[in-house]
Design a binder for these strands. Structure first.
Lengths: 251, 251
DNA sequence: CGGAAATTTGAAATCGCTCAATGATAGTGG
DNA sequence: CCACTATCATTGAGCGATTTCAAATTTCCG
């Protein structure tokens, strides 16, 4: 039942041996129910998490019960990597749906990084990709109104699901409540509700509960106004295999 | 007159040999005047830039003349790294003051990454740090009002300058026009002006033109409401020196 | 079926935007 | 040193998007 770990990062197609290497780092499998907290902001972060199944959210908490969901994690994402440069976790990780997580000690992760240039490069490039996505998210929140943000967010999820499932599907089953959606969009829950309804009436999407069907993809894209990014990279980073000065194990 | 390149990343104290290695990657030095464009969003990005002197901004452009400045680059920053995962540059880089830039081919950068685990680790950690800063920026824009964003931004700049100069200085000489400030804060230029004036009247800062003096640091921090991050990291990442399976050269 | 959580709706208040005009400042050439 | 011009900063007034507070309705789950 274990999903392939091949999207540990997006820039490396892992062969079987390497996949086992990564899976070997797992020290524990945990399950969480919807709304459970996986890790709290500020707590020491000696572990990172591989999201085997379910959706998780990364939230930055601000005073007074307000918070911003800075990232939606989908299956095969690696959670908690930003926190490795801090003494306490940068973000609160919360289960948005029932979730299965593989726990990996930071030390193992670092060891892999140090011993395998292929993985190191892949992780580095994945981090850059995350930066771009955050930049786009910031731009969306700073420069567009609620309906545009919603459109951009739905498209973002749609596109990421398309990569995972290897085919586009106009139907999105969002596990997010409207309150959580509001946390993502940077608006209030009440306004999230009105915006959702408003987008529905435009006919660009159709909504039945948390099931959202995209009816007019091009129009929705135009509304969302996100730059369309093609994530690729030069062959400079495609390290052939070991034996160019790197080793896969220790000594 | 060349500034030390020692802050190419924040997680590695480079020794002399390594510094030369990095400097050796430079193929060209360029100068730009205020407001000149260093690199345009969407254009092929085969180079990254070391900001030797001056301030530069990274902007994501949206339709209709609107844009979001997603990062303020200070001297010794590395510009353009997010774009290495894309076919076209993720952002427009623009000189906010007179600027001196060292141009580095992505291929050299990749080669360094591949051949030196110390540099690779430092770059990776620096990328994670950038992610955290973007997360905080997103939260600031999404969840706080204009004055709080301004406070948070001033503090952000203040703290980064303190690191570069190795001492805190309450006086900040912002080279940004109010329009550019607005691009950073995610508000309109007019409102940036009013907010600036308003913050001035609170007495937390004092303003003479673009010279801003922080008068009450703790109060300003409390207003800005950013989580205070201590950027550190485990010794796992402090690779001793080569010879743990890595080599410095090729072959 | 009952209770809790989530969604929906209304009305008033607020923050930031837009449009438009005025004032200040800095760089330029005479 | 001054006039000239462009850029930048400031101010006012009205409008619109989003928030806030509060209540009603629906859905979900045990």
């Amino acid at each position: 039942m274990k999903k392939p770990i091949a999207r540990l990062s997006d820039f490396l197609r892992l062969d079987e041996a390497e996949r086992q290497l990564v899976e070997g780092m797992t020290i524990e499998t945990r399950r969480y129910r919807r709304h459970e907290i996986i890790h709290s902001q500020g707590e020491p972060a000696r572990e990172i998490f591989y999201l085997a199944d379910g959706w998780a959210g990364a939230c930055v908490d601000v005073a007074a019960g307000s918070r911003q969901m800075v990232k939606i994690h989908l299956p095969s994402d690696l959670l908690g990597t930003p926190s490795i440069v801090l003494d306490g976790a940068a973000e609160t990780l919360i289960a948005l749906s029932p979730v299965t997580i593989e726990v990996i000690p930071v030390s193992s992760f670092a060891k892999l990084f140090m011993s395998s240039p292929r993985h190191a490069a892949a992780m580095f490039l994945a981090a850059q990709k995350e930066r771009v996505m955050l930049m786009d998210r910031l731009t969306s929140v700073a420069r567009t109104n609620a309906m545009q943000r919603l459109a951009a967010f739905l498209l973002h999820v749609h596109d990421r699901l398309a990569i995972i499932n290897e085919e586009a599907n106009p139907l999105i089953e969002l596990p997010l409540s409207q309150e959580e959606l509001a946390d993502v969009l940077g608006i209030t829950p009440v306004h999230a509700n009105r915006t959702m309804a408003q987008l529905d009436t435009t006919g660009l999407v159709e909504r039945r509960g948390r099931r959202i069907t995209i009816k007019d993809l091009p129009a929705l894209r135009s509304l969302g106004a996100s730059p369309d990014r093609k994530y690729e990279c030069d062959p400079e980073w495609q390290v052939p295999v070991p034996d160019t000065g790197w080793r896969t194990g220790r000594s």
